[in-house]
Structures are given as C-alpha cells and as structure tokens.
Computed example of a mutant assay.
Amino acid sequence: MDTPNTDTLGDTLVETGFAPNLAILDINNSLAVPHGFELPEPWNLPSRMFRHPIEVCPPDSAHPRKIGLRHPLLADHPFVRHVEARLGFEIDRNGAPNRHGYSSGPTARWWHAVDLITARKWRELLATRQFTERECIMHAVAYGCRYSHHEDKKASGYISITDARTVMNAVGASEPGDRSATIRAFSAPCVCRQDKGSEHWPINTGRLSAEAEAWGMIFGIEDGWFRYDRAGFLQWSELGRERYAAGDSATFIQASGQAAFAF
C-alpha cells in the first residue's frame, strides 16, 4: 500500500507512457487515447467520453491515487483493454471518485450526448445511448437548437427541428399539448445591450426539466417566438416577446399597435 510519500500508480502510468509526468496527469485527471491509436466503430466517434475513457483521481494525504472508468460499458473500449493489459489489472468499472465522492462519470455522460449532437451525429447518439442518459440527450437537443456551428452560413442550429423531434420521440419524450404555456415557462425576455448599443434577447430557461427545455426550444422555433441572430445564436424574436407579454390571452398587441390572435 502507498505511503503518503509514494505514488506507485502514478509512477507506473508515467513509466508505461500513459502520462508524460505526474504534474500533467494531475491536471488532466484522465488517460486519453493517444494520437494514432486506431479505434473501430463506435469507439471512433467524436465523443470526449470515448477519447478520455479513464479517469484518474490524484492522491491526497490520506488516500492513494485511483483509476477508474467513466462508464462501466467502457470496459470493452480497445484503449481500456490496452491499458489493462499493460498495467496487469482490471480498472475499476465504477470510476475513481475523490474523497468527497465526486466522479467525472456523470459529466462524461453529458459530453457524449452534446458532442455527438454538435457533430451532427444524432443517429450515432441514439445508437450509443447506453453510454449517456435520457436527460443528457434532451439537454443536448436543446443545446443543439440554441447554438450553431461557427462555419454554418445558414446559422440555423446544430440540429434541425425535424431531427430534434426524431430524437425526442426516440427517447420517449411526450409532446406537451399547450405549446404557448411550454414556452412561457421560460424566464421572461430581458434585453442585453452591448457597448455599441446593439440589443440581444437571450433565452433563459431557469431550472426547467430537460424535457420541458427541449420542447420549449422546438416550439419556440416552429412558432416564431425565437429566431437566430447573424452569429447563429437563438434569441427571443419581437413576436415572441409580444406573445410572452400577452400571457395566456387570446390576443396580443404587436409592435405596430395592431391586435393579433395568439395562435
């Protein structure tokens, strides 16, 4: 057993080439698949979970260094098998939580969902959903609706509304009946003004569930409550701000002063 002044596991990881030194190992808190290490499908997907499958917990004065998987199913990952073969023991399938019980495993589940959504690989996400959670997938759908790739000239989100609906249906998310109420559950529109005076109307969802957030984004885009700015960020539209201010009224007043039906 390691004493407070020894770090057998850390020294072994450095000696076997899995980390350049202990300082970098403690900064990264993980082992990454090295460049040039060939991975078959689905392990070659652009997921941070698949690129960094092993977490490493640094030692402290009372506890030695620990190593574990960021998800139990990563036991079949080719790099994990390679590391186990070099180290000569099985890596803990339940992660490497620190002395406070924190593990990066839950964060890695979110990485897997959002990385594949932003890579426009939602089909692959559904095919590997066992590595993430339903809530992570729905949060990732909302993220994909909210933001766009910087090279996307259309600036229309990482995922289309049609594809977003397909993903939501695949994870068993029930579509709410009251579209307006779903959007109005978001925080009230509030303007942000930049130094040059330009206005931006960010969408704040508060502490809503992942399902409510995702459906609200979908409805907001479909019904014109939200629109993308030139940079591809989703924000409240003028129509959406007017509709929100009207509440559940059957009519609302447009900026032109004319009344309109809220449907």
Rank of each mutant, 00 (worst) to 15 (best):
A250R: 12
N28V: 03
A170W: 07
P78W: 09
E133H: 12
H150W: 10
A262W: 12
T251E: 10
N94S: 01
S180W: 14
A181Y: 01
E41P: 11
A96S: 04
I91T: 02
S30A: 08
A181H: 05
A231S: 13
A119N: 09
A62E: 15
I117P: 07
G257T: 10
P189A: 09
L116E: 09
L126H: 01
M217V: 03
H149E: 13
Y244G: 14
A181M: 02
L239G: 06
A119F: 04
W43H: 12
A108R: 01
T107K: 08
K196E: 06
R86Y: 07
S174K: 07
G232F: 00
E175P: 12
S61H: 06
R207P: 02
T182A: 06
C136E: 10
S103M: 00
L31E: 04
Q194G: 13
E15K: 15
I137L: 04
H100Y: 05
F131L: 12
M168D: 01
C192R: 13
S174C: 03
E211Y: 00
F226K: 09
S47A: 15
E213K: 09
P4A: 06
T8A: 05
V167S: 03
W215E: 02
N204S: 14
W215A: 00
M217G: 14
P176H: 01
P59H: 15
P106N: 04
H77A: 03
A188N: 05
S148A: 05
I54Q: 10
S249Y: 12
R109P: 05
M217H: 14
R193Q: 12
P97M: 00
E90H: 03
P4K: 01
C190G: 06
V141I: 12
L13A: 08
A259G: 04
A108P: 10
E84P: 15
D229C: 07
C136Q: 11
A19T: 06
F219V: 00
C57N: 06
R193F: 02
E151G: 06
V114E: 11
S237I: 03
I161D: 10
H100M: 04
T12C: 10
A212E: 09
A127L: 11
W236L: 10
F263D: 13
S180F: 14
F50D: 03
P40V: 00
P34Q: 07
A231D: 13
A214R: 08
G68V: 00
E211F: 03
N204K: 13
N5P: 00
A246V: 15
P59S: 12
L25F: 00
E238P: 02
A245H: 12
F79P: 02
P97D: 00
T132D: 02
R165S: 02
E175C: 08
P53Y: 13
E222D: 15
G157C: 07
W43V: 14
M49L: 15
A173Y: 00
Y228K: 09
R86H: 15
E15N: 15
N29H: 06
N204A: 11
D163I: 14
R48H: 11
W110M: 07
I24S: 05
V191A: 09
A119I: 01
S174R: 06
E90G: 01
F263N: 14
H77P: 04
S30R: 13
D76I: 05
F252T: 14
